[in-house]
Design a protein around this nucleic acid. Structure first.
Lengths: 340, 340
DNA sequence: CTGTTAGCGCGTTCAG
DNA sequence: CTGAACGCGCTAACAG
């Protein structure tokens, strides 16, 4: 049987109130303090945070809803959040929505029923109706990697991210650039695609040929298939930009099967470990994933302490272009059109 | 304010007991049932699992302690466990021990204080003393990927795993094989190293030269450094076996910098995604990571339902040797010594 | 500073 | 089948 205040009372003769005060930082006479500490040690006593939360209405746990668990992106997100949250005394309940809106709504109800004090979520799509249960109960929500109107959000500057990739390529002389991007239903994909269009138009003065934008299922397979499809075009692009990590993996796999001569330039997205594994060393748009997680956790903690901003805020972080081996972004042979 | 039974009572005129019964599968008269359902819908009522757990002494949450969060192995582990556990109604609190025994002990106390019903853990080392708080409170623990005496464990057959790699290499004619393995303090490393020794002796009739066993810091860097050190030996091995995923990555990186002629054969460990990214396609000892997670979750659920075996059990799963491009495991040039 | 008395939201006896 | 009463472990008023 696990020990409770009553057991400590039995051993010390003190009242429950005194014991409670001891555990809540109140002033307790030195001899009593010692009595309690001894009894607690003897009983191997452990505070019951559940009962405690019943009164204080704080479970000291937060829910984290990810759209998938086994991706490098979300792995880093979880890791950093858990670190920061537990530091602040919070437990982290993770839930995988598996990119399914219904599952996401289920999970939200599940977490609300678990009385979590706050929720961090990477939403599956733009439909924010799943947030209702949290709103109703005043549970603060922070969205990550998606802009959710009316809700605290921590995102990256997706348009600038893609623009930096396009700029690198156009500077290297590319004028025909393909993009591998997912459906517009996802915020990041929509933004990156728009960023691509704008940047290409901006840099080359032309609208990108629509064939160069390949809407694909967001996955490694999609990246493989997409790059192959791009290269089968009558006028294939000389460079390809990948709008996320899965596409980058897939495109790399597909390109590995090509000879170096016919290989287009490639700018990938995300994961930095990749840079060390693949030859030629890839050029990547690196997201500040850890900062994304830390900022989100910090923002939620502020809300939980009641000292956040009055209005919902949006925190936007910048990406970094990691230049790889030059063969990954330069034309080869290099028919420099004078831009470089 | 969030609704409680009392609010439902107010709207229905029923007693708390009846409402409780409704939510716990008891028989309630049809009209009353409808009353409750209507009131619950109006109030947007949500059962308070915390209060509920106070009495039932079940928090319906389990703790999962990993030695690191951002590794492909643990990512898969978490993903599958969360899936299975939530299916069974349990929330999953994840904690990262960061391969630190003290942090692990902290986390254990944290979880016990959170009244988790059970714990799944990938322990950092062989010291099982951190389990005491759980034992004291009768919280069932399942260890994953480590054999913990007296505790339910789900592991792979590490010796056989390495033996399969060695067998492949010796069959291909290799007699001088290096191993990249971590310190003996980790169960898996100890087992894989022992498996290596046994297998080499078994197959070649010789004890492996000790220089060929490189104890390294378990990391990508260790893999890089280890393989370079092996190749600098006066008589470098013609093949290298990696005892984990990090080493495999590191070794691959290091080998990428070598010309194909001087490149030793390589058998890696773990992650299957890797196989698709790297050229030449690597040969890998693939662990059934998902099964590891599922079996562990299943075992814990049994314990939570009180219908598990009387004694602690050990579940051992088998690995699969994934043959990559033949250049990754065959001698080149092939001085077949008649074994093949 | 300490003890007493009420609950927190819900589950579980018991009567009825 | 339903209702009243009590208790889960702890915190928050208030008195002393």
């Amino acid at each position: 049987m696990v020990a409770t205040y009553k057991d400590i009372r039995r051993l010390t003769g003190l009242s429950l109130a005194t014991i409670s005060k001891y555990y809540n930082g109140g002033n307790v006479l030195e001899p009593n303090r010692e009595l309690i500490e001894k009894a607690a040690a003897d009983l191997d006593y452990q505070l019951n945070n559940v009962a405690r939360g019943l009164r204080s209405r704080r479970s000291m746990t937060v829910g984290v809803i990810l759209d998938e668990l086994d991706s490098a992106f979300n792995t880093t997100i979880v890791s950093r959040m858990e670190e920061r949250l537990r530091e602040a005394g919070y437990g982290t309940i993770i839930c995988d929505s598996r990119k399914d809106a219904e599952a996401q709504a289920d999970v939200m109800r599940f977490l609300v029923g678990k009385m979590v004090d706050g929720i961090i979520v990477v939403p599956v799509d733009d439909d924010a109706s799943f947030l209702v249960p949290a709103r109703d109960r005043g549970v603060p929500v922070v969205a990550v990697d998606r802009l959710v109107p009316g809700t605290d959000s921590v995102i990256i500057d997706n348009r600038a991210a893609i623009a930096s990739a396009v700029q690198l390529l156009t500077t290297a002389g590319h004028t025909s650039i393909g993009l591998l991007a997912g459906p517009d239903s996802t915020y990041t994909m929509r933004e990156r695609r728009a960023g691509f269009r704008d940047a290409v138009q901006d840099r080359t003065g032309l609208l990108p040929r629509t064939e160069l934008i390949e809407p694909e299922h967001v996955s490694i397979e999609g990246g493989c298939a997409g790059v192959r499809r791009l290269l089968r075009l009558s006028a294939p692009p000389t460079a390809v930009v990948c709008a996320n990590y899965g596409f980058t993996l897939g495109a790399t796999i597909a390109l590995n099967e090509l000879g170096p001569e016919s290989r287009p330039a490639l700018v990938g997205f995300d994961n930095m470990d990749l840079a060390r594994l693949i030859r030629p060393r890839p050029t990547l748009v690196a997201q500040p994933i850890e900062d994304l997680a830390i900022e989100a956790a910090e923002l939620l903690l502020q809300r939980l302490n009641g000292d956040g901003p009055d209005e919902p805020v949006t925190i936007t972080l910048d990406t970094t272009l990691m230049i790889g081996h030059e063969s990954t972004y330069q034309l080869r042979p290099v028919p420099s059109n004078g831009r470089l």
